[in-house]
């Protein structure tokens, strides 16, 4: 009894430490986006919103934000639709071995370092004579989001009742009708959830972007530029806003994706 209690406390403490390790960086950035001292050090002297004003005074921010939102929308729609269709197709396959193999193959881009994906795409586009910019970057974002969309869709579809489709077909519905009236309404929340996740991944993507965006801007590219120039407290404000958007998207994705299941 005492033993179980102490091991429970130990487990609790361990998880708390791990969560602190994961979240300390984020908390630090948000905290220091509000402090007056430009240095990130203790003790804290006072609080201010000046760095947020400063961040918006950056002439590049409007452009970066617009581009990032365009990229996120393309990744959400492109990866969301293709990934959902793929996960659905894999589920319907009869042979479990083929199913496993296709699923594993679709997750490959998540195991290859983003650096390698980024440079290989740059090589492809160079070979095709397509100049660097938003178009190339958008394709990269769809590619790196796809594995995560497939993975989440696959998890959600495991509870999907395929017998309703057979019932619809037996009652004479065409395959298009079955999809439109039975399948799609049921999996729509999952698709939207997965698409929001793709948007979050795109909004946060830096490495593939860096090798394909050329002279264009995106929020992470702008943040990178500021980071390399030294300690600028408006980075914290910019980063906090990015974090806020990301957290909203991921929580939204989870919330919507779980509806009806």
């Amino acid at each position: 009894m005492v033993n179980a209690l102490s091991s429970n406390l130990l487990a609790r403490g361990f998880l708390a430490l791990v969560l602190l390790y994961l979240y300390a960086p984020i908390m630090v950035i948000v905290l220091f986006s509000f402090t007056t001292s430009p240095r990130l050090s203790m003790p804290i002297e006072g609080l201010t919103l000046a760095w947020y004003k400063n961040a918006f005074a950056n002439p590049l921010i409007t452009k970066a934000l617009t581009n990032s939102l365009i990229l996120a929308a393309i990744a959400a729609i492109g990866a969301g639709l293709m990934g959902a269709a793929f996960a659905f197709g894999v589920m319907k396959l009869a042979q479990p071995r083929l199913r496993q193999a296709l699923l594993a193959a679709s997750l490959l881009p998540a195991v290859v370092p983003l650096l390698v994906i980024g440079i290989s795409l740059a090589v492809l586009f160079h070979g095709l004579g397509l100049p660097q910019g938003l178009r190339n970057t958008a394709i990269g974002h769809v590619l790196v989001s796809l594995p995560f969309v497939v993975l989440t869709m696959n998890a959600r579809l495991e509870t999907f009742d395929f017998t309703t489709l057979e019932a619809a077909r037996d009652l004479g519905a065409s395959s298009f009708q079955t999809f439109r009236d039975i399948t799609f309404p049921q999996i729509r929340p999952s698709i939207v959830g997965a698409a929001l996740l793709a948007a979050a991944l795109s909004l946060d993507e830096f490495v593939v972007t860096w090798f394909n965006i050329g002279n264009e801007q995106s929020v992470p590219v702008l943040v990178w530029g500021l980071m390399r120039r030294g300690v600028d407290p408006s980075i914290n404000a910019l980063a906090s806003m990015l974090l806020f958007l990301l957290v909203c998207l991921v929580i939204g994705s989870n919330f919507i994706g779980r509806r009806n299941t």
């Binding site: 791990v18 969560l19 994961l22 979240y23 300390a24 960086p25 984020i26 630090v28 950035i29 220091f32 240095r39 990130l40 050090s41 203790m42 996740l197 979050a200 991944l201 946060d204 993507e205 830096f206 992470p220 943040v223 990178w224 980071m227 300690v231 980075i235 980063a239 990015l242 974090l243 990301l246 957290v247 998207l249 991921v250 929580i251």
Partner: peptide
């Protein structure tokens, strides 16, 4: 834990620099 996976790749690396830096949070 999964939420932290999607929250700021660049931002978290930069945050570690501000935590571990010579005049960073930990040292100060």
């Amino acid at each position: 834990i999964l939420l932290s996976l999607f929250s700021g790749y660049l931002v978290r690396i930069y945050a570690w620099r501000t935590i571990l830096g010579k005049q960073g949070l930990l040292n100060s």
